[in-house]
Nucleic acid binder design. Structure first.
Lengths: 188, 188
DNA sequence: ATTCTTGCAAAGCCTTTGCAACTGC
DNA sequence: GCAGTTGCAAAGGCTTTGCAAGAAT
């Protein structure tokens, strides 16, 4: 299976206990089955613009690289990681392509702590985040009724909702423990 | 009544219909009654630090100016508006004081569209926002169960929640109508 | 051939910071 | 008087942009 199609696991209901984990310990939610690979979906988006856009090697590399993993990332990290993997993309192109991927519905963008972070939107269940202000980790969680909450709020104000960002700021359990340990040391 | 104590209206339950409006048409939620004025609350915060901090003229001007109105604002707008009102604060001081006001629980900070926006937290009910990507307006709305949603998500991950930011991105009704009108013109 | 994309470097924006002068407490 | 604060200007970090060369359709 190519990296770009590693998104076909069916969505399972249930708690975290059955979910996979990232290298940094973040829980990975089950993926959603989709008919098109991210790459195909992006090509479709590009072609159906009123002014058709082109699909380049750099864009292909980016889509494949991004969807071969499930981490949250920012532009800089992505560029570095790709370079380390032998794929070179200029900063300008990275930013321009990330914007297109968001518009195409493949990525979701979050602004946190002054930087922009991206994550999969296509082939991945809707969710929100707990953001640790100490270490920066983004912990995903799902809110069952969030769609209806948004729908109701929007309709009350004649607002057309396109996307949302729900981030709870605080301290993760690891950082909390670290802090307690530090306090103990400070007392010695 | 001095500007800094214009926060004593009791919290009323109910719909938008009875609420005041801002100069830009945003709905203003009813304020919450609080025992201390923002200025007093800030002084208390400053004094109770492990290393007591000072309350300066510039800080006083900022607190008074900010709490004399109810708009959402960013650092730059604040500095400009204050200067126009004859109150001068340097950029550096503005940023430094805004950070303290957030830490003191007087202001809430949101990152949106690459800039940081502030709004009252003290003396103002908890709420979330619909953000129009076309004109930038922040429409407030209240979600009844949001606290318990956050509490549950946090406890499931051993996370200590400090604050949250829930922003629905989209298009407000005014901009939607403007867009429709523009399309009609385009067809001519 | 035309039109879009890339890469580079420069510029843009917002925000933070070093430092000397200043000022609450 | 000591320790925290201010203002200036410079630096910082992230993102966007102008432009000439290159590539997709």
């Amino acid at each position: 299976m190519s990296p770009s199609t590693a998104i076909s696991t069916a969505l399972k209901a249930g708690t975290d206990s059955g979910n996979a984990h990232r290298s940094n310990g973040e829980v990975v939610l089950p993926t959603i089955s989709v008919s098109l690979s991210p790459e195909e979906k992006f090509r479709e988006y590009l072609v159906t613009r009123s002014r058709p856009q082109r699909f380049t090697d750099q864009q292909r590399d980016m889509v494949r690289f991004i969807f071969a993993q499930h981490e949250h990332f920012d532009a800089d990290t992505l560029i570095d990681d790709m370079k380390r993997a032998g794929l070179t993309v200029s900063r300008a192109t990275a930013y321009r392509t990330l914007t297109k991927l968001v518009d195409a519905g493949l990525l979701r963008r979050h602004e946190t702590g002054g930087r922009t972070r991206y994550e999969h939107d296509y082939g991945y269940p809707h969710h929100d985040h707990l953001h640790c202000q100490a270490c920066g980790i983004m912990i995903e969680f799902q809110v069952s009724g969030i769609d209806s909450i948004i729908r109701e709020a929007a309709s009350q104000h004649g607002f057309q909702a396109a996307s949302h960002s729900f981030i709870v700021q605080g301290t993760c359990s690891a950082c909390r423990q670290r802090r307690v340990a530090q306090r103990r040391l400070d007392r010695i």
